[in-house]
Design a protein around this nucleic acid. Structure first.
Lengths: 233, 233
DNA sequence: GTCCGTTTTAAACAATTGTTTTCCACGACG
DNA sequence: CGTCGTGGAAAACAATTGTTTAAAACGGAC
């Protein structure tokens, strides 16, 4: 029987190396010879173990996303009975961890870029990934925002707030090449992620509250930002 | 003398077709034979007119971004003397137009995807593009946000608010494959862009105001969102 | 009409790609 | 010992790549 016992070392080594290569250069630009050279195995090994380059990529991508969601759960232990503000904060922190942690989905340079590439150039099995990981995650965020917006919120309002929240998180991962050029190296240790979490949560809670006010009273548009010194004329 | 008069038709045809191809499949996966076939020219034409595949790509990418920024200016005619709220709204609308307009930077499917790819896999000349287009744009947004935050805002605060604003805009372009799968087809006509502009501006003005309040009084954290019925106990 | 530079064409080129085939090593089991 | 099957290695394979070459077609100037 094939693929037993210590095959794992070879198989896993290939997956590990391939993740880095696919992440750094993309599917098409990555050659199996380059992967095999880095992994110290023969070119035939990939067809032997995975059946082809395409299947190897599917394995790598699925493994990477699954393990990342496993390591950084969506709700971070804050369940649906908590206050929505707490849940939002946990959600944001989880998203940032998945995206920005050195071992996460946008680790740079390396396998994390694979997810960004997947967005720019979806694989044939993008639908499976969306169903398995994105859709449940989006549902949780929708639930949180629905609570924050209160009754009367339209589906469109909820969707837009969802994107406003998740877009802030994603941008750090998606636009990393730009951000690095604009502001220098990005650090993503635990404390940096915590600070970003605070900012995005604060920003988003206020944004959602503003949308809620608009929902309640569409006539009253937000005032020109709070006065610096709280004197009211 | 080379490249005179009606060369433009051939050259422009190649640029047009190549933009679509590079956008749809990426640089590496796009073959010059495929471009030439679609353009109805010989394979040698690309080396003749552009000097090679790489230079063709550089031409296509630069042309695309430059023409888009030309068509949709950053400030949309609202200059630095206007109220920062107005300027922010104009900035957001401009960004959304550049990104989402059918002839814009993320037209789908087609040449627009090229910009998203550029972020996932920066070309050697990404630096030039950042200097020419991104940096000035970011500076304008930074100026607006600085005004909104008032005196005392740190560079880090400004930068984070910048990303919070632009991240909301970019997400519609970057995550389009996901958004389509989650919510169905995306429309991006003028009225849809206007509605998005209103949402993002409202959301962001409240977010920035909240950061400003935190700047003034770090102890007072935002309350758990406004009460549905304005009764105060 | 003739000439000359420009443009276009078809063919060939060398390099690289993913995949397949063929062969060798080696340990288990009868 | 012999046999067989599994895991791995080199080589060969067919297809495709970007690029170059060399010759033909074109179009105005004189």
């Amino acid at each position: 029987m094939a693929h037993s016992s210590q095959d794992r070392s070879v198989r896993d080594k290939i997956i590990d190396v391939a993740g880095d290569a696919f992440g750094r250069k993309g599917y098409k630009a990555t050659t199996i010879r380059e992967i095999c050279k880095a992994a110290g195995v023969n070119v035939a090994a990939i067809n032997y173990y995975f059946g082809g380059k395409t299947e190897l990529y599917r394995t790598v991508a699925t493994d990477l996303i699954a393990s990342t969601f496993d390591r950084y759960p969506v709700d971070e232990g804050v369940d649906a009975t908590s206050a929505p503000e707490q849940r939002l904060k946990a959600f944001v922190r989880g998203a940032l961890r998945r995206l920005l942690s050195p071992d996460g989905l946008s680790g740079y340079p390396g396998k994390g870029q694979l997810v960004v590439r997947e967005l720019a150039d979806p694989s044939p099995f993008m639908d499976d990934l969306v169903d398995a990981f994105i859709r449940p995650t989006a549902a949780i965020l929708a639930d949180i925002i629905t609570q924050l917006l209160g009754p009367g919120a339209t589906a469109q309002m909820i969707a837009r707030c969802q994107i406003s929240v998740i877009g802030q998180c994603f941008h750090y991962a998606m636009a990393r090449p730009i951000l690095i050029r604009l502001a220098g190296a990005m650090v993503a240790d635990e404390s940096a992620i915590d600070e970003l979490t605070d900012h995005i949560t604060r920003f988003s809670l206020a944004g959602i509250a503003s949308v809620r006010r608009y929902l309640t009273d569409p006539a009253a548009e937000p005032r020109p930002s709070g006065r610096p010194n709280g004197e009211t004329p």
